[in-house]
Design a protein around this nucleic acid. Structure first.
Length: 855
RNA sequence: GCCGGGAUGGCGAAAUUGGCAGACGCAGCGGACUUAAAAUCCGCAGGAACGAAAGUUCUGUGGGGGUUCAAGUCCCCCUCCCGGCACCA
């Protein structure tokens, strides 16, 4: 998925300093490479079982990367979370699908082509190979047989197929729309490539807005469903849902027609959410681009000049991203409009703060009850008339007064006295009844413009014939292949417009020479449905519906919050469209969404320019894949930003090293038939202590997987368990009196708990324990025994008025009265109580006794 | 401006339901091993004051107020930081 982080080329990975002979530390490289090579020979290792296997399914997807050339730490973190989850789900008896792919169309490939004279395809496929090798070295459990590479015809032909279906359903259409155009590059720029209004490659060149014929998808047909669906998506972060709600921007209001006072038949329709204030309207404001403006100002040279200046100003501000902070400007058109509610004539102005692409491009201006209108009216001396008041207040409050809750109409003809919200309803109904307006819902969400004047993307399957017009490419002629070995230059426009073999085509209807569409699709099309393709990458359809219906919705989708709006909105839309086509049954793509935090260093996002980038290859070479992954989980909860500290990796490496030593020094192997059961009540207190800690650790880690995913505490729990084991070294030696079955039990469960987080070391240690490492992935997850996890005794605190005074050890779950008496009998407590009066004693089981005293 | 999220030791963080603040780790300090270092192991460790020490007392979760026997956690007000949106009528 396109993201803004620049990936770095592979640095030379520095090797770890030569090891001293007596260095007993775990050396991960040979171990990890051994297992990686072994796993490579078993490609079906991470394949799911058939859809009728009877196990509960679990479909987990991490957002696919853009193949920039190298993984960065953000990727590692994202995939480490998904991989731990996938492995836990396998061990918990699920049928797991855990795939990976490449969001491999897009601009960087073209830029690399210009810079290095390499073909985008070659550059991209090389990057994929390099990054795939990195992923394999990191030990992620992907089923590579389902790999999706969006830039290959096997995939993008289905983008084209979907496009034809969208067109058939009336959901794809062509219209003029504005694009960012760099005159120097003579091509279109993506929004991200516009920096402070200038081209990212030509810092002194202002980007222009050009109108071009563009293909759009009618995502707005689903506005209401996209909005309402959010309410029930409890598995998605509230933050993402809120961002999407704001983006959709549904607002209920009223369209009201103002007629022109000069009697011409033209009318101006305004959109307002506050029709209750319409008796306070003192002007009508039109957007400068409003179609009526030219007509109204006619040949008036002064007003024409004002309009042109305003358009230029607005364009400049839009390009500089300063729209919104612009000074409000406007001019009177010389015409008047009639307010249909009271027949009043109000002046028609053109205002630079009116947006043509929202609502109707025209508003009624009520300065008394709208801050923007107020500012404008003050500047130009337009009348300000208050018509609503807060309830229970006699005087008109200081203006502007904008609330509608707890306020009523004070000057609204027949509607006077109604609450504002009631007036809105009745006045809308009144307009509708009298034919000059109606209640209207307006959305901020716009249709999705998908045309890109670019080479490296999916060709849009259309043909333009002079005689027959615009024609879709017949389905049996798909895919429209992207030509290879095309010269990519800055010469202007899409490179495809210079490839005759591509654009010159016989019209499918009349057979005469026609022209192919040379625009390609936005790469967000690719990422809108790729996770369906994973379920069944077949050649006769985008995917097999039966298989997709088994796996969907995704149980868990994991990625960066930067995709909260675009990608996640588009893919929701695509799912609904596919559902309406009958391809899938689910309404939403993902049951649960998780957005992980960024990886930062020294308080800033890792970036080349700040020189604070940590290369995963470097970390893997020094500390191993396990330690690198484990650190990304340990350093912070996954949903928060992670502040990278090199010393921290060292710490988790030391933990793995200690664990390796702990098990390899006294591995307990069991021969066939040897007892695995033991009686916990016969254990020494030290051994019982370890056993208790073991079961507490199972509880904590299992709870983290099932609950809030705070894997940092999972890792901490494993460290505590190891510390507890190593605190009693005498338990583990071969000549120890401790039952062998106990030692075997503890060691095996430790390895099982480790395996979702550090799969290489887990495989190695499982082998050291005489087990078959191939069984680990689907070995049942250990089950905590609550009785064994329970403490026999607990330390409680005794407080005076909430202040700690004494610590006591009492039996677990001792009854409150006993604990109270124990506390009161304590010497130190008795001493502290002399001369005081006990008001109350509060006992909290297994926690504390609080004695409320006075005097 | 609006909507989110956040602020806890020197640092990353923990405290899951209002109940011992600082688990775990990093860095630090002291010790063992070593000719020495690295590695490893053991121990100490929020701050302040007192004490030779064991320890004792006070104080402490961005700031101010409140609820409660008890507040990092709940309520009200404020400050700062991060992210998103921003003339959306």
């Amino acid at each position: 998925m396109a993201d803004s982080t620049n990936a770095l080329p592979n640095n030379e990975a520095p090797q770890r300093a030569a090891r001293a002979e007596d260095d007993t530390r775990y050396d991960p490289s040979p171990v990890e490479q051994k297992w990686a090579a072994l796993w490579e020979t078993d490609p079906a290792r991470y394949a799911p079982e058939p859809i009728n296997c009877g196990k509960p399914k679990y479909y987990v997807v991490e957002m696919l990367p853009y193949p920039s050339g190298a993984l960065h730490m953000g990727h590692v973190r994202n995939y480490a979370i998904g991989d731990a989850l996938a492995r836990y789900m396998w061990m918990s008896g699920h049928n797991v699908l855990h795939p990976m792919g490449w969001d491999s169309f897009g601009l960087p490939a073209e830029n690399a082509a210009i810079k290095n004279k390499r073909q985008p395809k070659e550059w991209t496929l090389n990057n994929i190979a390099a990054m795939k090798a990195q992923m394999k070295r990191l030990g992620f459990s992907y089923d590579w047989s389902r790999e999706v590479t969006t830039c290959l015809p096997e995939y993008y032909r289905w983008n084209q197929w979907f496009f034809l279906k969208l067109y058939e359903k009336g959901l794809a259409y062509r219209k003029k729309s504005k694009v960012n155009w760099c005159p120097e590059c003579a091509t279109v720029l993506a929004n991200e490539q516009v920096v402070d209004g200038c081209c990212w490659r030509h810092e002194d060149t202002q980007v222009e807005l050009r109108e071009l014929e563009q293909w759009s998808l009618r995502i707005t047909d689903y506005s209401d469903e996209l909005l309402q669906g959010l309410d029930s998506m409890e598995g998605w972060p509230e933050k993402v849902r809120t961002m999407q709600r704001n983006w959709i921007g549904r607002s209920e209001g009223t369209n009201v027609d103002f007629t022109l006072a000069d009697g011409t038949k033209a009318k101006i329709t305004v959109f307002t959410t506050r029709v209750d204030t319409i008796y306070g309207a003192t002007s009508v404001q039109l957007a400068p681009q409003h179609p009526l403006v030219k007509e109204l100002i006619g040949s008036d040279a002064v007003r024409q000049a004002s309009l042109n200046e305003m358009l230029a100003d607005q364009k400049r501000a839009r390009e500089n991203g300063e729209i919104g902070s612009m000074e409000k400007k406007g001019f009177f058109t010389g015409h008047y409009a009639v307010n249909p509610y009271n027949g009043e004539q109000v002046p028609i102005w053109v205002g630079n703060y009116i947006l043509m692409d929202y609502g109707t491009g025209a508003i009624m201006s009520v300065p008394a009850h709208d801050e923007r209108d107020f500012e404008f009216a003050q500047k130009y001396g337009i009348a300000i008339r208050g018509v609503i008041k807060p309830d229970g207040v006699a005087e008109m409050p200081e203006l502007p007064f904008c609330a509608d809750e707890g306020a009523s109409v004070s000057d609204g003809g027949p509607f006077t006295g109604l609450s504002c919200t009631e007036a809105q309803k009745q006045m809308s109904a009144f307009a509708e009844k009298n034919g000059f307006g109606k209640a209207t819902v307006t959305f901020r969400l716009k249709d999705w413009g998908i045309s890109r004047q670019r080479y490296w993307g999916t060709p849009i399957p259309f043909i333009y014939c002079d005689g027959c017009g615009m024609l879709p490419v017949p389905e049996d002629q798909l895919p429209v292949l992207l030509p290879e070995n095309v010269e990519i230059t800055l010469a202007g426009g899409s490179p495809l417009t210079r490839v005759k073999e591509f654009y010159e085509v016989a019209c499918p209807k009349c057979g005469k020479t026609a022209r192919r569409e040379s625009d390609t699709m936005d790469t967000f099309v690719d990422s809108s449905w790729y996770f369906y393709r994973y379920t069944s990458p077949i050649n006769t359809a985008p995917f097999d519906s039966e298989v997709a219906n088994y796996w969907f919705p995704m149980d868990q989708y994991i990625g960066g919050v930067e995709h909260a709006i675009l990608h996640l909105m588009y893919s929701r839309f695509w799912t609904k469209f596919m559902r309406d086509l009958g391809l899938v049954k689910n309404d939403e793509p993902a049951e649960r969404l998780f957005t992980q935090g960024m990886v930062i260093k020294n308080g800033a996002k890792m970036s080349k320019s700040l020189g604070n980038v940590v290369s995963p290859d470097d970390m893997v070479a020094r500390y191993g894949a396990d330690a690198t992954r484990l650190y990304t989980l340990f350093a912070a909860p996954p949903d928060r930003d992670l502040d990278w500290q090199d010393q921290g990796v060292e710490g988790v490496y030391r933990f793995l090293s200690r664990l390796y030593r702990f098990i390899t020094e006294n591995p307990v192997k069991l021969s066939a038939g040897e007892a695995t059961a033991y009686d916990p009540s016969t254990l020494t207190p030290a051994a019982r202590n370890v056993l208790r800690k073991l079961h507490q650790t199972i509880q904590r880690i299992t709870g983290d997987f099932q609950g809030r995913w705070h894997f940092n505490t999972s890792v901490a729990a494993m460290m505590e368990l190891l510390n507890a084991c190593m605190a009693s070294p005498e338990l583990w030696t071969a000549d120890s009196a401790t039952p062998k079955a106990f030692r075997a039990d503890v060691q095996r469960k430790m390895v099982l708990l480790l395996s979702p987080f550090a799969p290489y070391l887990a495989a190695e240690l499982w082998t050291v324990l005489g087990e078959d490492a191939n069984t680990l992935l689907r070995h049942p997850w250990p089950v905590a025994d609550a009785a064994l996890a329970k403490e026999d005794e607990v330390e409680i605190v005794v407080q005076f008025n909430g202040k700690l005074r004494q610590r006591l050890t009492v039996p677990h779950d001792a009854d409150d009265e006993t604990v109270k008496q124990t506390a009161l009998a304590d010497e130190k407590i008795k001493e502290g109580l002399t001369g005081k009066q006990i008001v109350k004693v509060i006992v909290v089981k297994n926690k504390l006794v609080n004695i409320v005293i006075k005097g």
